[in-house]
């Protein structure tokens, strides 16, 4: 056990799985980086933010493939390789680039098993960065997990910490279905204790980062940390929250969400993705349908507005959900009860 960053945890998961299983390969734009360059340093980058650094040096050109900037071909190749005996981990760099290769994910990899009558296995992992906070603007900041969650046949993972990232990525690589693994780019330097050995965290099992009596907060990815910060402050004021990190949006641990709402009677959902047809609407619909009687107050969603992600920091800060907004949402659902009683 030692302190590891989110970046190191992901790198270690890849390394350990590549050591364990020779069928695991990596591909993506600059996952090695520097191939063919004049410096003769094929491990120059290790991915645009250095997540795969060192893997080319250890595993070589037969396992780590730099690709042309050509998402449709290599994401499709990853799907084809997965269906024919390899276990590829393809890095899409920014998840926003899915626009260039969605067909290969949506119509090919996701559908093979069902449309081939259960006879295909597509053990594919697509890693990509998501999220705002770096002033990367509208084409490099989106949180597109609802898009993938919408597609049957895909599993969608959003780790909320280094410990979660390592265990969930190893699980993803060992899983026989196509998995979209989304890493919040703002979190790469976050650190915490992460076991040195390999471990797996099962999909579809939410993590409760804390348990309280008053409000259930469901939060995704980086928003889990924000929700915890808000809950810390609220606890000082006597409001205790349960914070649910679903870990995977597909499969979604609906049971835990419903159980917690049954206990607290109030629900706040924090989702960094655009507000229409996102995870917040999905969870709100679930609870409205299945736990209506348990609700003591309307469900509140904390999301960005329905705009592209803006560039200027002042606008981006306005755009992003933050602990203060979560705190306010929790207080508003607590206040609703008071209004009724009054």
């Amino acid at each position: 056990m030692s302190k590891k960053s989110f970046r190191q945890a992901i790198n270690e998961a890849l390394r350990q799985e590549m050591r364990r299983d020779p069928r695991v390969i990596l591909m993506g734009e600059d996952v090695a980086g520097g191939q063919g360059g004049s410096a003769d340093n094929p491990d120059a980058w290790g991915g645009v933010l250095g997540v795969t650094k060192g893997l080319y040096t250890e595993f070589g050109a037969e396992r780590v493939f730099d690709t042309p900037i050509s998402e449709a071909s290599y994401i499709g190749a990853a799907a084809g390789a997965a269906a024919t005996g390899l276990r590829p981990v393809a890095e899409l760099m920014f998840v926003d680039f899915i626009g260039s290769c969605l067909d290969q994910v949506m119509n090919q990899a996701a559908k093979f098993r069902y449309m081939f009558g259960g006879k295909a296995r597509t053990p594919l992992v697509i890693r990509a960065m998501y999220g705002a906070g770096f002033s990367a603007a509208a084409q490099h900041s989106q949180a597109l997990y609802p898009l993938f969650t919408h597609i049957p046949g895909l599993k969608v993972v959003i780790p909320s910490s280094p410990y979660e990232a390592k265990g969930l990525l190893i699980e993803a690589i060992r899983d026989d279905d196509p998995v979209i693994f989304l890493e919040n780019k703002v979190m790469y330097d976050d650190e915490e204790d992460v076991p040195d050995d390999s471990y797996t965290i099962p999909f579809g099992e939410a993590n409760l980062t804390r348990e309280g009596d008053d409000v259930t907060i469901v939060a995704f990815g980086r928003m889990v940390n924000f929700a915890n910060q808000a809950a810390d402050r609220l606890e000082k004021e006597g409001i205790t929250c349960t914070v649910i990190d679903p870990r995977t949006t597909s499969p979604l641990d609906t049971g835990t969400i419903l159980d917690c709402v049954a206990e607290t009677g109030r629900l706040v959902i924090v989702d960094e993705s655009s507000p229409r047809c996102n995870m917040a609407t999905d969870v709100a619909a679930l609870v409205a349908e299945e736990a209506f009687d348990a609700l003591k107050a309307p469900i509140r969603r904390v999301t960005p507005p329905h705009t592209p992600v803006p560039f200027a920091s002042v606008l981006e800060n306005l755009y992003m959900p933050d602990p203060a907004r979560i705190e306010a949402a929790v207080k508003s659902v607590m206040g609703y009860k008071a209004k009724q009683e009054a």
């Binding site: 071909s73 499709g76 024919t84 590829p88 081939f116 295909a120």
Partner: peptide, 30 residues
């Protein structure tokens, strides 16, 4: 499709096959 016979599927998407075949060829190579 019949993957046991190396038939990776007919495909409803025009141009869907060539990327998949790059992947299958990569499997053969690796």
């Amino acid at each position: 499709a019949d993957l046991s016979l190396g038939m990776l599927g007919a495909n409803g998407i025009v141009g869907g096959g060539p990327p998949l075949i790059c992947g299958a060829a990569l499997s053969h190579k690796v």
